[in-house]
Write a protein that binds this DNA or RNA. Structure first.
Length: 491
RNA sequence: GGUACCUUGACCGAGUGGUUAGGUAGCGGUCUGCAAAACCGCGUACGGCGGUUCGAAUCUGCCAGGUACCUCCA
């Protein structure tokens, strides 16, 4: 591998050189959505972050198996219904089958991901389809003495585990604090210790989603699915496990404990976490009720949105910040990103208009190298974007004939954009496929601009301005260059 | 209370112990019949107070403010 990627590992709290366990194969598991509601801006962050990692590793020549789960077995919910799971609760409310609810939101999620140009993972396993594997995991943990049954439920024995291993290794907590600070949840009385977490929960009569097990009719604890499915599809040891920072504790901490308790070692080599998207300075989250759904961004139909935003604008907005920093939502920032992206795309489409010369006045290899350097430095997409703007300036200077570029410069510029903007950052040219109708309408616009050009030659400014103003009013943007006019339709 | 993290110019947002990030907005200029676009130039920032250092926004201490996790959350 020519290029060496360094990635920040939450476990060691530093950037580490990425060395796959079985190159060129790479296994990557990312926590996906719980499908009981519409995906919001917060869901876009990990999806895009790990899409970038997936794309970049693939670009570097690795064969990546990317597993991103769908959580359709609800997690325990803290409310008066005492542990009724979220999917089932939503189902009762809407009088639907649980599977109907999760199917509906899964489709909505996929649709939103398509809009963001997030590639589908290699495998998208459902928790409900892997109950057997989860039961097996629980059995192994019990056989090794790190879990106990109580009233038909099974709990992980954190105290016992911590005698032999380190519970808190990922999140940097110590167990005494956790015991003191653990809240009084349902089932506390069944536990030996408040810090113990559920591996299997006996279903109350109110539950719709339940499965038979050696202990009771019930459902798996919410940390089991990722351990079980990660192991099933990626093996006992795999390279990368990703997710939002809010999952570090307890979810990922518990996954590590489950892996160590069942097989003696953690499954994961690199733990990678993206930061949160905030709104007015605090985290955008379902439970806080301060979220804006992706659908609302696409339509502009939300009181906090001053306009609609394309999936690609949102994608670019997210990529303009490093994945480990927070991103605060604001219309200003989003509009700024939208314009910036459009500037890059305009420059790219202008490459065709550059007239090649025999002499080169720039060194474009430097740009490509800088882009790789930035990507290798823990996926520093904002810096990559900065370099792409340098390339855009060179293109525009060449179009204006302020500098000269050779044929090979021009193809290098095209290559830089193709590799970094399109292939790795996952931007695409939206109106790539015109319908027959649109092509015809486009020709009509061309025709109007020809008339306008004639009017300009004859200095009939009133006519030429009329044509331009009318087209502008319809949403066309007309740009006059030295050798003619170009147009594009905005939005 | 415990554990992490953050504080950069109008806004967004990178970054390294001493050299221009980049974008958006603004201002001035070039180009243009005009406009838009593009190009050139400009603002000269790093929460506060100390310390280390020849030199710190970048390392260290304290203070202030903010965020996340500790409960389902991406």
């Amino acid at each position: 591998m020519e290029h060496k990627l360094s990635i920040y590992n939450t476990l060691t709290r530093k950037k580490e050189l990425f060395i796959p366990l079985n190159a060129p194969a790479v296994g990557m598991y990312v926590c996906g959505p719980t499908v009981y509601g519409d995906p919001h801006l917060g869901h876009a962050r990990p999806a895009i972050t790990f899409d970038i990692l997936f794309r970049y590793l693939t670009h570097l020549g690795y064969k990546v198996r990317y597993v991103r789960n769908i959580t359709d077995v609800g997690h325990l919910e803290h409310d008066m219904d005492e542990g009724e799971d979220k999917i089932a609760k939503k189902a009762r409310l809407e009088q639907l089958e649980p599977m109907e609810v999760s199917q509906y939101y899964t489709l909505r999620y996929h649709n939103a991901m398509d809009n963001l140009n997030v590639l589908p993972p290699s495998i998208e396993p459902h928790a409900s389809g892997h109950i057997i594997e989860q039961i097996q995991l629980v059995k192994e943990i019990m056989d090794n003495g790190y879990a106990y049954e109580s009233e038909g439920s099974v709990y992980f024995d954190v105290t016992k585990y911590n005698q032999d291993h380190h519970y808190g290794i990922l999140s940097g907590r110590n167990i005494d604090d956790m015991i003191v600070n653990t809240r009084d949840l349902d089932g506390q009385s069944e536990k030996r210790n408040p810090a113990d977490f559920a591996l299997w929960k006996k279903a109350q009569p109110i539950h719709i989603m339940k499965w038979p097990s050696p202990w009771s009719e019930g459902f798996p604890g919410w940390h089991c699915e990722c351990s079980a499915m990660g192991r099933k599809y990626l093996g006992n040891r795999f390279d990368i496990h990703g997710g939002g920072m809010d999952l570090v504790f307890p979810h990922h901490e518990c996954e590590i404990a489950q892996s160590v308790a069942s097989q003696g070692e953690d499954m994961v080599r690199y733990w990678v976490h993206n930061n949160m998207i905030t709104i007015n300075g605090s985290k955008m989250g379902k439970s806080l009720g301060n979220f804006i759904t992706l659908e609302e961004f696409f339509t502009g139909n939300h009181k906090l949105l001053s306009q609609s935003y394309s999936g690609l604008a949102i994608r670019f907005f997210i990529l303009m910040a490093h994945y480990r920093g927070t991103v605060d939502f604001s219309n200003d920032a989003l509009q700024s990103a939208e314009k910036a992206l459009s500037r890059l795309l305009d420059a790219f489409s202008g490459i065709d208009r550059i007239e090649p010369s025999k002499h080169s006045e720039v060194d474009l290899n430097i740009i490509r190298e800088k882009c790789y350097k930035a990507m290798n430095d823990d996926l520093n997409t904002p810096v990559v974007i900065g370099h792409l703007f340098d390339a855009a300036r060179i293109i525009n200077q060449a179009i204006d004939k302020r500098i000269t570029l050779t044929e090979s410069d021009i193809s290098e510029l095209r290559e830089i954009f193709n590799v970094f903007l399109f292939e790795i950052l996952g931007i695409k040219i939206e109106s790539g496929n015109y319908s027959e109708r649109e092509i015809i309408f486009g020709k009509v616009v061309d025709m109007l601009l020809e008339y306008r050009a004639t009017a300009k030659v004859n200095k009939e400014w009133e006519i030429s301005d009329n044509i331009r103003n009318s087209l502008t009013a319809l949403g066309f943007e007309i740009k006059d260059n030295k050798d003619g006019s170009t147009w594009k339709l905005n939005r």
